[in-house]
Design a protein around this nucleic acid. Structure first.
Lengths: 103, 103
DNA sequence: TCGTTGGTACGACGATCATCGTAGCAAAAG
DNA sequence: CTTTTGCTACGATGATCGTCGTACCAACGA
């Protein structure tokens, strides 16, 4: 089962902003930015259930904010920094600079 | 009836991102940024009803994106550029730079 | 005074959202 | 082979969202 990722030119601003407008997803993105090495879904200390976590990762992926790569039964998540920067210059940095250091 | 505006330090990133995640509101903000002189609600060429327009302006105001000042029966709208810049540096410019010139 | 204008309040509608639990699957570990 | 691990799929639930129409109000112009 291949995961769908929007192409760089398909990224839409409202969708990206909506993806970033949830505190849980903002925290995911913050963690991903803090440590650029791809990270598994389970390694985020979020106080939500596993199904909810899956939901948030899908929203981020379908908006084009993160990339999810299969690795066995796990998923490796990483930020699509370059794609976001090219399409929406400065946006991700502005968001990351405005989010508190630790949730 | 005094309109409620959040104080600069009360602005919350998720709320602002959510306010900006709707195409209609994005268009309002784009127009407001294009021409910095305060503008009345009715002067935006949006294809929605008056009640919907009122709703969108309220969401923007309550998130702290715009300021609404009473002027007779009208409302003068303006962007809260300085407040946004101080709280979320670079965010508004990044958003405005990413939104298409004309919707 | 009487319309007209610019906007709000309220209630409604269907759609989407965030959340969860349960069930399940595929890969890795034993 | 069996168990565990990591995650998804599905369905449900209550909340919020975007949209609208109707009713209304306050200020202005004739």
């Amino acid at each position: 089962m291949t995961l769908h990722h929007p192409a760089p030119e398909e990224l839409e601003l409202p969708a990206v902003l909506h993806a970033l407008s949830d505190p849980q997803r903002l925290e995911i993105v913050r963690c991903l930015a803090e440590d650029p090495s791809p990270r598994r879904c389970g390694t985020f200390e979020l106080t939500v259930s596993k199904s909810t976590l899956t939901h948030h990762f899908r929203v981020l992926r379908e908006a084009g904010v993160i990339e999810q790569r299969a690795d066995g039964t796990a998923r490796l998540n990483s930020l699509r920094r370059e794609d976001l920067e090219q399409r929406f210059p400065g946006l991700l940095d502005a968001v990351l600079g405005s989010v508190p250091a630790s949730a």
